[in-house]
Design a protein around this nucleic acid. Structure first.
Lengths: 204, 204
DNA sequence: TCAATTGGCATACGATGCGTATGTGAAAGG
DNA sequence: CCTTTCACATACGCATCGTATGCCAATTGA
């Protein structure tokens, strides 16, 4: 039994609470998740939770920070694989749509998070994703791929909203796979409208 | 004292409960609204609420149906004023953005509603708005204004999501008026991409 | 090595709000 | 005029939250 230093035990406790909360929030939702229940499941009590996170909302924040970081990382990986900047940009939006198919993301990031913590656009972390989109747009404009006249921030937010919302539709569709394809195609067609040159018209 | 028939008294009670709930949900939010408090404010008790709506969620549903009807009506009026079908279509989206500036709409329709009742795309009433958008798109395609190859439903949902989300951004911006203009302009530019003919390029 | 102190976490308590079961009085119907 | 119905109020039990308090282990300094 290697004795662990105290700081490590504390970090473990925090991690266990975040994991337990994340699981509970994802499965039954924030409001229905009993702090007594899921802290006990982690072998702890509400005392630990209040000590580390202040209250239930504090834990939700921590959970959201964690998930948000994971999402941003996945999006970055995906965009990096694209053959060019434009495709990378489009893939980011489509990546959003696909990630929102995951129940955990839908429930915590898209449903309960905004309801409990307010507008996601105001979350410090979530702005990362939008900032990324916005920067991509700007670079594309500099490269002459899209019009320079567009409002980068506003457009980035519109597109982010479009993919987020589309994802919700996809997730609730009877046939999510087919809906996902339709949503992705429609998204592509929508952003194609931003291109300067007449788009290469996929056959209709 | 004109004695009112019984049916009328019942309708009045329902209306009072909906009004009280609507006010409470809008001001403090669904979760924080105490049923005891706002029913008392209407001169009633929770007993009446449970009798008419089953539970707290049931009342929220009724409130949402009411607000949704008002929104749809306002959108219809707005689109009817447009000089042509295309402008009417664009105005519907922009109308969404503007309505979401109202605290009541944001709180009840965009924040608490989805959290408590689930994906709005699955609400029977809210589909009205999307169906309207979808029908507009179809008519525009028939008229040759937009490409026939587009997926009407998927595109309608993307656009509805874009305007809804943009509205949230606008509402939380430091300067909502300016943000609203930027969001509307960006929205217009985005949907312009759907036009068949090379758009009349506003100067950039 | 041995106090002393810090602080991580548990326990205990009070308050609030929800859902249900039951009661009541007035309107409708024969 | 008696009965039935039903709109709504009252009363109870239960779950959950936040706080105040207590305990024990780990660190610190001499």
């Amino acid at each position: 039994m290697a004795r662990k230093p105290r700081a490590e035990m504390i970090a473990e406790t925090r991690a266990k609470l975040i994991a337990a909360g994340r699981k509970a929030f994802a499965s039954v939702g924030y409001a229905e998740a009993s702090m007594d229940d899921f802290t006990a499941e982690a072998g702890l009590t509400r005392g630990a939770l209040y000590h580390h996170f202040g209250d239930k909302k504090g834990l939700l924040e921590a959970v959201i920070v964690q998930i948000d970081a994971e999402m941003a990382e996945r999006l970055r990986e995906r965009a990096a694989k694209a053959p060019n900047a434009w495709e990378g940009f489009v893939d980011e939006g489509i990546g959003y749509i696909e990630m929102a198919l995951e129940p955990e993301v839908r429930r915590i990031m898209l449903r309960d998070g905004p309801a409990v913590l307010g507008d996601p656009a105001a979350w410090p972390t979530a702005n990362d994703c939008i900032t990324t989109l916005q920067d991509s747009l700007k670079r594309l404009a500099d490269a002459g791929v899209v019009a320079e006249s567009i409002d980068f921030e506003a457009t980035a937010r519109l597109l982010s909203g479009a993919s987020t919302y589309a994802a919700q539709w996809v997730a609730n569709a009877e046939d999510p796979v087919s809906a996902s394809k339709r949503a992705s195609a429609a998204y592509r067609q929508l952003v194609d409208g931003l291109l300067c040159e007449p788009r290469p018209k996929l056959d209709g």
